[in-house]
Design a protein around this nucleic acid. Structure first.
Lengths: 108, 108
DNA sequence: ACTATTCATCGTAGATCAACGATTGTCCGT
DNA sequence: ACGGACAATCGTTGATCTACGATGAATAGT
């Protein structure tokens, strides 16, 4: 049977790429959250407003160096910041960047 | 001295991991969007409700096989679905999964 | 039947990730 | 000044991603 006769699912309009200037930014932010350990770290920081690296290590079944790597990735994305507090380092969420992630996702 | 006198940035409450049962799911969904090409593909499908693979290939500076890989990743995440339409394949967004991504991110 | 079109898959090469142990650097308290 | 605690970095090992061309499978049209 000619199934083509009833426009099954596809548009006919010319394809034009929409707003994609921030595709890279969205991809970067999403990438930061694209690992379970980083999701847990981020949630931990969100719920506690701040947290020392050591406490995060205690909560995850990962080596200290691995956690530090994840923290670095999150920091590079801008989602978290770390400020030195003596020999410790205190991490906290950058609410502004978190909002950017939320709005970019919500705008999908 | 007790540096606690100035409460620099950190809580003192016991650290407890919050809801992390869906950390993996969020990571998976985020991972699907953690690449500019996949962001563009997803936006393309969202704006058009459906689209044939070939049209997507035309819009991206990537080889057909590469686009097909990205489509596979998006399909595995559940964000999109593909139904065969003759020799072509028509992709469309799974709004339900997209909403799950949005709500998981919004709940951060 | 044959051909052309469309898309998925295979195989490959290079880059990046994720994990760890070990090391280094920095700061506080003694 | 020295030792201990904390965290970043280094170096390494597999695993996975990303990209491509080439090949393969399925379908529509002649």
């Amino acid at each position: 049977m000619a199934k083509a006769s009833k426009t099954p699912c596809c548009d006919d309009q010319p394809v034009v790429l929409p707003h994609d200037g921030d595709a890279q930014r969205l991809a970067d932010l999403a990438w930061a959250v694209a690992h379970p350990a980083r999701v847990r770290i981020l949630r931990l920081l969100i719920d506690r407003t701040a947290c020392v690296c050591g406490e995060i290590v205690d909560q995850l079944p990962l080596a200290q160096s691995t956690v530090s790597q994840h923290l670095k990735i999150l920091k590079q994305s801008g989602l978290i910041r770390g400020e030195v507090d003596g020999p410790k380092v205190c991490y906290c969420v950058d609410r502004e960047q978190l909002e950017q992630l939320k709005s970019l996702i919500a705008a999908l």
